[in-house]
Computed example of a mutant assay.
Amino acid sequence: MASRAVWKGQLRLSLVAIPVEIHPATKSGARVSFRQIHGPSGKPVRYEKTVQGIGPIKTDDIMKGYETGADGYILIEPQEVDAIKLETKKTLELVQFVDASEISPLYYDKPYYVVPTDDLAGDAYRVVRDALRADQKVGLGQLAMRGKEYLCAIRPCGDGLLLETLHYADEVREAEPLFSRIEDAKADKELLSVARDLIKRKTAPFDAAAFEDGYNKALRDLIDRKLRNRKTPRASKEGSDSARTSGERENVIDLMDALRKSLKTEPAKKPAKPRGSGSRKQA
Rank of each mutant, 00 (worst) to 15 (best):
M1I: 11
A2S: 14
A2T: 09
A5F: 03
V6M: 03
K8N: 10
G9Y: 05
G9M: 01
G9C: 03
L13I: 09
L15F: 15
L15Q: 06
L15K: 07
L15V: 06
P24F: 05
K27C: 10
G29R: 13
G29M: 08
Q36E: 10
S41W: 03
G42C: 01
P44C: 08
E48M: 11
K49V: 08
T50R: 10
T50Y: 03
T50K: 09
V51T: 10
Q52T: 11
G55S: 00
I57F: 00
T59R: 15
D60I: 02
I62F: 04
K64T: 14
K64L: 15
G65L: 05
T68Q: 08
D71Y: 05
D71E: 15
G72N: 04
L75G: 07
E77V: 04
V81K: 01
D82F: 04
K85T: 10
E87H: 02
T88W: 06
V95D: 11
Q96N: 15
F97W: 02
A100M: 12
S101H: 05
I103Q: 07
Y108M: 01
D109I: 00
V115P: 03
T117F: 02
L120A: 09
D123R: 13
A124R: 00
Y125W: 03
Y125S: 04
R126M: 11
R129F: 04
L132I: 06
G141Y: 01
R146H: 10
G147I: 06
A153Y: 03
D159E: 14
G160N: 07
A169M: 07
S180F: 08
I182E: 02
E183A: 12
E183Y: 06
D184E: 13
A185S: 14
K186S: 14
D188N: 11
E190T: 13
L191I: 10
L191H: 10
A195D: 07
I199H: 08
K200N: 13
A204F: 11
F206D: 06
A210Q: 13
G214N: 10
Y215M: 04
K217A: 11
L222G: 00
I223W: 02
D224C: 00
D224Q: 12
R225D: 11
N229L: 00
R230V: 08
K231H: 09
T232W: 06
A235E: 05
S236E: 10
G239T: 08
S242Y: 10
S242R: 14
A243L: 14
G247C: 06
R249T: 15
V252T: 06
D254C: 02
L255V: 15
L259W: 02
R260Y: 07
K264I: 11
E266N: 13
E266L: 15
P267R: 07
K269S: 13
P271M: 00
A272C: 03
G278H: 12
A283S: 11
